[in-house]
């Protein structure tokens, strides 16, 4: 594995470059939010439902409570990316652990873990997330947990398949004969070699988590102390006839962010998983 060349290939990949540029834009937005708008997104600054451009100081206009929509969108990037990354990371870790153990040991442990994975995958996932967040109460913590809880099975299956393949390779057999303990073989030999698919999956998980978070917020299940794109869309729903820009501007932000992550996922897939390089 030669990371530098892969990074170069990724950057030369058209969708990789476009996706990365888009994503960086949103990341910059998220990081800069408190410096650009120290007053926070909840400040009511003008008359409600001012259209974009009606007041030159308010580039994107105001929402139905008179809050600056631009500030909401900028702060919304923080929530989306924060929830997306943490939920994806959590599900990648859980999924990888389950996949590793079940693939490496096989037998009844592996079987049982896979049955449980199957069962989790059969749950209607968004419905389950609504149930968890709705019942325990909306906060960043419960939102991330609920998303992770419904997304890890996909990683588990993927990692298990990888492990099953790698486990039969000569170098793993060699480690075994040398008497290396199981946990070291798993962590030091197998895991690094199955990172490719995990990274690709994680990039798609981030996208998926952002979609779930915005959906939850849209239904009124967002964290009330964090301005989220889904929440803005949900609040703007009743004003759709009078001020459609309130819903459509943050909707555009969601779509662009998810698009960026999908493009990155595609590029990563092409670069890291040469076996699957079609499509």
């Amino acid at each position: 594995m030669k990371p530098p060349s892969q990074i170069r290939r990724f950057l030369r990949h058209p969708s990789g470059a476009v996706g990365l540029a888009l994503l960086l834009f949103f990341v910059a937005m998220a990081l800069a939010a408190p410096y650009l708008f120290p007053q926070g997104p909840y400040k009511m600054v003008a008359r409600p439902m001012l259209w974009p451009g009606q007041n030159p100081d308010l580039l994107l206009g105001t929402d139905s409570l008179g809050r600056d929509l631009l500030v909401s969108v900028v702060y919304g990037a923080r929530v989306s990316l924060l929830v997306g990354l943490s939920a994806a990371l959590a599900s990648a870790i859980v999924g990888a652990a389950v996949g590793l153990v079940s693939g490496y040991f096989g037998g009844w442990i592996g079987d049982m873990l896979m049955r449980i994975t199957d069962a989790f995958q059969t749950l209607p996932s968004f419905l389950a997330a609504i149930l968890i967040v709705g019942l325990i109460g909306p906060s960043i913590g419960t939102i991330v947990t609920s998303i992770a809880l419904v997304s890890w099975p996909m990683v588990a299956r993927l990692v298990r398949a990888e492990v099953l393949r790698i486990k039969t390779l000569d170098f793993v057999q060699a480690c075994r004969i040398m008497g290396m303990p199981d946990w070291r073989i798993m962590l030091a030999e197998i895991l690094p070699n199955s990172l490719g698919p995990i990274i690709v999956a994680t990039s798609l998980l981030v996208a998926n988590a952002i979609i779930i978070e915005s959906g939850l917020s849209f239904l009124g299940l967002g964290d009330p102390n964090m301005m989220s794109w889904g929440g803005v869309i949900g609040n703007g729903r009743s004003a759709l006839r009078m001020a459609w820009y309130i819903t459509m501007i943050p909707a555009g932000a969601v779509v662009l962010t998810v698009l960026a992550l999908n493009l990155i996922g595609d590029a990563l897939n092409d670069v890291l998983n040469p076996r699957l390089r079609k499509g």
């Binding site: 915005s214 869309i233 759709l240 909707a251 969601v254 779509v255 998810v258 698009l259």
Partner: peptide, 15 residues
């Protein structure tokens, strides 16, 4: 397909 793949159902519904 790329754009549709990035649009959550509630966004499409509102549109």
């Amino acid at each position: 397909a790329l754009v549709l793949y990035a649009a959550p159902s509630f966004v499409v519904a509102m549109l």
